[in-house]
Amino acid sequence: MANLNERGLAHMRAGEYEEALRCFSEAVNERPDDPAGYINIGTVLAAAGEEEKALECFRQALMLDERAAAAYYGIGTVYYKREQFTEAKDMFERALALGLADADTHFMLGMSLWRLEMPRLALPYLQRAAELNEGDAEALFQLGLCLATLDYVDEAKRYFEKTLEYDPRHADAYYNLGVIYAYKDDPAAARDLFAAALDANPDHVLAGYGKKLMEKRLAP
């Protein structure tokens, strides 16, 4: 069965959801008392947008093992997608308490707290997510955003710059760096960063507004 689950995970990573479901379903048929198969099926269904069916699978896994941390994580991702952030937070906290202490769990718990407008509580989880996966540009960016919200401007600047090391086309990182340079009264640098944001995303309205504002400040 482990081989079936491994094959299913490989298909899922490749976006081959039907093949993944076939492998995981076979795994469940072979071992109906093992929660892993249900968790894997739920993960595929959630990725495919079948949220209610996914929740059923995660709950089935919890009926078999109420300490199945990955099932709580899976339920949390569905709640987060539905913008039920309090419920998502509770699920990610449960997953973390049960030992699922990877970068994704820390990140999603941090993001749930962030969306609940609790940046100070979100900060340590986003920091840990960035530590566990230094190459994750989005984790670095969200950590920078959280730091900026808490007025840790220099620390935020460092993480926005690190974001761009891993994703040189991250428009929001350029934009937020531009805001910091505008705050530091360096309109030329701010203008260039807003321009870079627009180059990465021509529809970035705030960057367009910021660039015009800086150009006015630089006008003789």
Rank of each mutant, 00 (worst) to 15 (best):
I41V: 09
G8L: 09
E52N: 14
S25G: 14
V44D: 03
R67G: 07
R67T: 13
I41P: 02
A61Q: 05
E16R: 13
E83F: 12
R13P: 04
E18N: 12
A69H: 08
N5A: 00
E52K: 15
H11Q: 09
A36K: 06
A47Y: 08
E51G: 12
A88F: 00
T77W: 03
Q60K: 15
N40S: 07
D65C: 04
R31K: 12
E51P: 08
A61G: 08
T77E: 10
C57E: 15
M91E: 13
V78T: 02
Y80E: 12
T77A: 03
D65H: 04
C23I: 03
A48W: 10
A54T: 08
N5P: 05
C57I: 04
A47D: 10
E30Y: 04
L45F: 05
A70N: 10
Y73A: 11
K53C: 06
N40W: 00
E30C: 00
A20F: 07
F24E: 03
Y80D: 13
R67H: 14
P32E: 03
R67D: 09
N5C: 09
R7K: 14
E51W: 15
N40P: 00
E18I: 04
N3V: 11
E6V: 13
Y38W: 11
G42N: 12
L64Y: 04
K81F: 14
N29W: 01
E30S: 02
L64Q: 02
A47L: 13
R31F: 06
V28F: 02
E56F: 14
F92H: 08
C23T: 08
M12I: 02
E51H: 15
R13N: 02
G42T: 09
H11V: 01
F24M: 03
D65F: 07
M63N: 14
G37E: 01
N3Q: 12
L21I: 01
V44P: 11
C23A: 11
Y73I: 00
A10T: 14
L55F: 10
G8Y: 04
V28N: 03
A71E: 05
A47Q: 15
D90F: 01
E26V: 02
R82C: 02
R82D: 07
F85Y: 15
E87M: 08
A61F: 10
R22T: 07
F85E: 01
